[in-house]
Design a binder for these strands. Structure first.
Length: 567
RNA sequence: GCCCCCGUGGGGUAGCCUGGAUAUCCUGUGGGCCUGCGGAGCCCGUGACCCGGGUUCAAAUCCCGGCGGGGGCACCA
């Protein structure tokens, strides 16, 4: 394997060099991407200067005379900034070599760290709607990115088969019988009806009684009949998005195997478990986790009901103790409505001396007419937008490429439609709320998956047409500004992947894909490849197209989006 | 009422955590580019850091106080 020649490599060389030379530990964030025209990476020397009580200009000058190895073509001190430029010719040869050996530019050392990512975990009361779809898309993308970066990642869906919601469905089925056709769509209708009746007539007690009997061992078959059916449909919707789980864990497990009981014993032993006048167990947040008690009206966090049945928070603690035994890093993807419960679990894990989960929160996806609500029936289901997206893409393909067979057009349309949905959601930063609009989600232009796919297909078009073998390239000539810009972008790829993996921010990959496609389109207009007369430059451009196509495909694979070969 | 998150051109969005060299990009809008490797494209113009203080050589970025939007506030999950 050739030694690395890209931005990531350079970034780490800078960190190493500063440590060697000055004994100062800087982080990857102390090194920035400079504005255009100043090279590939830049080290502002203010911090080091301050540390050494010397002027930053002096430091940058001093460092510029160091030996930076053959990957660096130019290094210049501009005032307090130290700017580095990579040797693009070597970078291109390096990228070709890596891709030849691995078939991808995603090439990282194994970290031997086990990561457990829990995501989606939607209640099994009906099909997934778009509001919830943000969760699996984020979770799956983070999983793919961290796996690519070298972690041993396991993904898990935590099924709440023991909550009030599922019990509500069961209550109805026990009363009226199971539906003729059992499906997620049928059960969600029952859920809506049952829920309305429970609320209207105040029948919560009846549902609670069912829950109590379930916890003491009854109805196991009936519950799994509902839950397994709904889960089957949820998982198949997710399958359409290219999302699969390594494991599915049911909440009831932790009640039936005695874990929740052991948690209560442990808390009781530590003297933090309290019982109120009705017999319900709780912990007092003021005393146990004062930092999250702030802003609450009632600071008791209940773990059981007065009839002795378990509550979500208790089961979640048991679950997290179990997770801790299976992984080094625990990551949960949760909607922002779980913030309180999540910080409670984190706090309890700290108190119990267990591994504390890291939580990635996202804001809701809503509709122009308001927040989605299963109970109120104001929803767009994931299946609906996938179908709509695929349909629109299909029509577009048929219109533009009438010679393609219906079957192939549908295959392409699936990739485009699914890609558009995934991309549209992942490209927005997590803490921003999304208002779902059909036109935006399914846009075929601008900052969207189809645009990037189109660029990729264009690149393939060139490669397929060429009779020459770009792998034979030995002496690249990279002169044109757009050739340089494109190469620079390719050399940033692994650096972006590292940052996305470390910060758990998949939208960085989306942004990178778009930038790359955009630069490529620019290059495509201005730098003809096949008609270039100088054979060396032609071969160089061909190689450039090849590595760009690979990087686009790689980036999309990190987002769980398949690239079509044709459009 | 209290706590958390967010506020960037007409709409959307990156940059904020980690202060630093010309605030990113999409869309909209005005104009231009097809006998060309696939126009789902490219180029040029237009237009923004919520308000007020503070810290700093330097603030979109950090701190304090407002205002506006989202979320939470416990025997739901």
């Amino acid at each position: 394997m050739p030694i690395n020649m890209d931005v990531l490599y350079l970034r780490h060389s800078i960190i190493d060099k500063v440590r060697e030379r000055y004994g100062i530990e800087i982080s990857r964030y102390d090194i920035t991407y400079p504005p255009e025209g100043y090279g590939d990476l830049s080290l502002p020397c203010f911090k080091i200067g301050k540390h050494l009580k010397r002027s930053p200009n002096e430091i940058s000058k001093e460092l510029s005379s160091e030996d930076w190895g053959e990957a660096v073509e130019n290094i210049s001190a501009v005032g307090p900034y130290l700017n580095f430029s990579l040797r693009y010719e070597l970078g291109l040869l390096w990228a070709l070599k890596v891709i030849e050996n691995k078939g991808t530019l995603i090439d990282f050392e194994r970290k031997n760290v086990k990561v457990l990512i829990e995501h989606t975990s939607a209640n099994p009361t009906g099909p997934l709607h778009v509001g919830r779809a943000r969760n699996p898309i984020i979770g799956d993308s983070i999983s793919r990115i961290m796996r690519a970066y070298g972690y041993d990642v396991t993904t898990e869906y935590y099924v709440d088969d023991m909550g009030f919601q599922v019990a509500t469905i069961l209550w109805w089925c026990l009363k009226h019988g199971f539906p003729k056709e059992e499906s997620a769509y049928e059960f969600v209708r029952i859920y809506q009806k049952a829920n309305a009746e429970v609320e209207e007539k105040g029948l919560q007690k009846d549902v609670l009684e069912i829950l109590r009997r379930y916890e003491s061992g009854e109805f196991k078959e009936e519950v799994s009949r509902i839950v397994d059916c709904v889960m089957r449909d949820i998982l198949s919707s997710l399958e359409r998005l290219n999302i699969r789980f390594n494991s599915i864990v049911k909440e009831s497990k932790f009640v039936f195997d005695g874990s929740t009981k052991r948690v209560l014993e442990e808390l009781s032993k530590r003297g933090i478990l309290r019982k109120d006048s009705t017999g319900a167990l709780y912990v007092e947040l003021e005393e146990v986790c004062p930092e999250i008690a702030r802003g609450l009206q009632d600071t008791s966090m209940y773990l059981t009901r007065s009839d002795g049945t378990t509550l979500y928070a208790l089961r979640d603690i048991a679950y997290h103790i179990d997770k801790g035994k299976r992984a080094d890093i625990i990551i949960n993807i949760l909607g922002e409505d779980h913030k309180l419960e999540a910080s409670f679990v984190q706090c309890m894990m700290r108190i119990l001396g267990k591994k504390v989960p890291e939580v990635v929160f996202y804001s809701f996806v809503s509709l122009p007419e308001g927040r989605m609500s299963t109970r109120k029936g104001r929803v767009i289901y994931l299946d609906e937008i996938l179908e709509e997206g695929i349909l629109r893409a299909y029509q577009e393909v048929k219109k533009r490429r009438p010679e393609i067979s219906d079957e192939e057009a549908l295959k392409i349309a699936k990739k485009v439609g699914v890609g558009a949905v995934r991309y549209g959601i992942v490209k927005v930063q997590l803490e921003k709320p999304i208002v779902f609009k059909w036109e935006e989600a399914l846009s075929l232009e601008g900052d969207s998956a189809p645009f990037i796919m189109y660029s990729y297909v264009r690149a393939l078009g060139i490669l397929n047409k060429s009779k020459e073998e770009w792998l034979s390239l030995e002496k690249p000539i990279i002169k044109d500004a757009l050739e340089k810009k494109l190469m620079k972008q390719v050399l940033r790829f692994r650096d972006v992947v590292e940052e996305a993996a470390l910060t758990r921010r998949p939208y960085l990959i989306a942004k990178y894909s778009y930038e790359t496609a955009s630069i490529f389109n620019n290059f495509y207009e201005k730098c003809p490849v096949l008609s270039e007369s100088d054979p060396l430059r032609r071969l160089t451009r061909l190689a450039l197209v090849h590595v760009t196509a690979t990087v686009l495909k790689d980036a999309f694979s990190l987002l769980g989006i398949e690239m079509p070969e044709k459009l």
